[in-house]
Lab assay of single mutants.
Amino acid sequence: IDAAQIVDEALEQGITLFVVNNRLQYETSRDSIPTELLNKWKQHKQELIDFLNQLD
């Protein structure tokens, strides 16, 4: 699994991931984030931050 897949998966569930001051953040209108997704974010945090920083 790679960062792009995780970002896409989040988007499919209505969650936008982004980076502020090198910290992973998210925006969503959902009430809660699925635990499975949160765990993936934690496991791949640095990859996600690097990936999202490249997009900007």
Score class of each variant (00 low, 15 high):
residue 29 S to Q: 11
residue 37 L to K: 04
residue 35 T to I: 14
residue 41 W to H: 02
residue 30 R to M: 09
residue 53 N to F: 07
residue 5 Q to I: 08
residue 56 D to K: 10
residue 48 L to H: 00
residue 26 Y to M: 06
residue 32 S to N: 10
residue 29 S to W: 10
residue 35 T to E: 13
residue 51 F to D: 00
residue 41 W to A: 02
residue 42 K to R: 13
residue 11 L to N: 08
residue 23 R to F: 11
residue 37 L to Q: 03
residue 5 Q to M: 11
residue 45 K to Y: 15
residue 3 A to G: 04
residue 30 R to W: 05
residue 17 L to G: 00
residue 7 V to E: 01
residue 25 Q to K: 11
residue 24 L to T: 00
residue 19 V to Q: 03
residue 49 I to C: 04
residue 34 P to Y: 02
residue 21 N to M: 07
residue 14 G to M: 04
residue 45 K to Q: 15
residue 41 W to N: 00
residue 26 Y to I: 06
residue 21 N to L: 06
residue 27 E to H: 15
residue 3 A to D: 01
residue 21 N to I: 03
residue 11 L to W: 10
residue 42 K to I: 14
residue 12 E to C: 11
residue 35 T to Q: 14
residue 51 F to H: 07
residue 16 T to Q: 09
residue 42 K to C: 15
residue 21 N to W: 05
residue 47 E to K: 09
residue 9 E to R: 04
residue 43 Q to W: 07
residue 52 L to T: 00
residue 39 N to R: 12
residue 50 D to G: 06
residue 25 Q to N: 09
residue 41 W to M: 09
residue 26 Y to L: 04
residue 33 I to P: 05
residue 41 W to D: 00
residue 54 Q to S: 13
residue 9 E to D: 06
residue 26 Y to T: 03
residue 40 K to S: 04
residue 34 P to S: 06
residue 41 W to V: 08
residue 30 R to N: 08
residue 30 R to P: 02
residue 8 D to A: 15
residue 25 Q to E: 13
residue 12 E to G: 11
residue 41 W to R: 00
residue 43 Q to T: 09
residue 47 E to C: 08
residue 7 V to W: 07
residue 33 I to V: 12
residue 39 N to S: 09
residue 7 V to N: 03
residue 5 Q to C: 07
residue 20 V to F: 12
residue 8 D to K: 15
residue 55 L to P: 08
residue 24 L to G: 01
residue 50 D to V: 09
residue 56 D to Q: 15
residue 3 A to L: 12
residue 15 I to F: 08
residue 56 D to T: 14
residue 8 D to S: 15
residue 17 L to R: 00
residue 13 Q to Y: 15
residue 31 D to L: 10
residue 1 I to W: 12
residue 17 L to N: 00
residue 43 Q to C: 06
residue 55 L to E: 07
residue 27 E to D: 09
residue 35 T to K: 12
residue 48 L to Y: 00
residue 18 F to Y: 13
residue 31 D to P: 11
residue 4 A to H: 12
residue 41 W to P: 00
residue 8 D to T: 14
residue 32 S to R: 09
residue 9 E to Q: 06
residue 12 E to L: 11
residue 10 A to E: 01
residue 11 L to F: 10
residue 21 N to Q: 08
residue 34 P to V: 03
residue 30 R to S: 06
residue 47 E to L: 13
residue 49 I to V: 08
residue 50 D to S: 10
residue 13 Q to I: 08
residue 29 S to V: 09
residue 20 V to K: 13
residue 54 Q to K: 13
residue 20 V to W: 12
residue 10 A to L: 04
residue 28 T to N: 04
residue 24 L to Y: 02
residue 12 E to R: 15
residue 9 E to I: 03
residue 2 D to A: 11
residue 51 F to T: 02
residue 25 Q to C: 15
residue 2 D to Y: 12
residue 22 N to F: 06
residue 15 I to Y: 08
residue 13 Q to S: 07
residue 45 K to T: 14
residue 35 T to H: 10
residue 14 G to R: 05
residue 33 I to H: 02
residue 19 V to I: 06
residue 44 H to W: 13
residue 4 A to V: 05
residue 46 Q to W: 10
residue 25 Q to I: 12
residue 53 N to R: 12
residue 1 I to V: 13
residue 34 P to L: 03
residue 17 L to A: 01
residue 27 E to R: 15
residue 37 L to M: 09
residue 27 E to M: 14
residue 34 P to W: 02
residue 14 G to L: 04
residue 34 P to A: 05
residue 35 T to G: 10
residue 30 R to K: 09
residue 45 K to I: 13
residue 22 N to G: 15
residue 9 E to N: 04
residue 21 N to A: 07
residue 17 L to W: 02
residue 54 Q to V: 07
residue 6 I to S: 01
residue 48 L to F: 02
residue 39 N to G: 07
residue 33 I to A: 04
residue 6 I to W: 06
residue 30 R to I: 06
residue 11 L to Y: 09
residue 33 I to K: 01
residue 40 K to G: 02
residue 26 Y to A: 05
residue 4 A to N: 06
residue 26 Y to P: 02
residue 52 L to M: 04
residue 12 E to V: 09
residue 29 S to K: 13
residue 40 K to C: 12
residue 18 F to W: 07
residue 15 I to H: 04
residue 34 P to F: 02
residue 49 I to P: 00
residue 18 F to D: 03
residue 20 V to I: 11
residue 40 K to R: 08
residue 55 L to F: 10
residue 53 N to Y: 08
residue 23 R to G: 08
residue 2 D to W: 12
residue 50 D to E: 11
residue 8 D to V: 14
residue 50 D to K: 10
residue 6 I to Y: 05
residue 8 D to I: 14
residue 30 R to T: 06
residue 24 L to N: 00
residue 30 R to F: 06
residue 10 A to V: 02
residue 43 Q to Y: 08
residue 27 E to I: 14
residue 51 F to E: 01
residue 27 E to Q: 13
residue 26 Y to G: 01
residue 23 R to V: 15
residue 45 K to L: 15
residue 10 A to R: 01
residue 51 F to W: 09
residue 5 Q to N: 07
residue 16 T to Y: 15
residue 55 L to V: 11
residue 7 V to D: 00
residue 25 Q to L: 15
residue 56 D to F: 12
residue 46 Q to I: 07
residue 25 Q to F: 15
residue 16 T to F: 14
residue 5 Q to R: 13
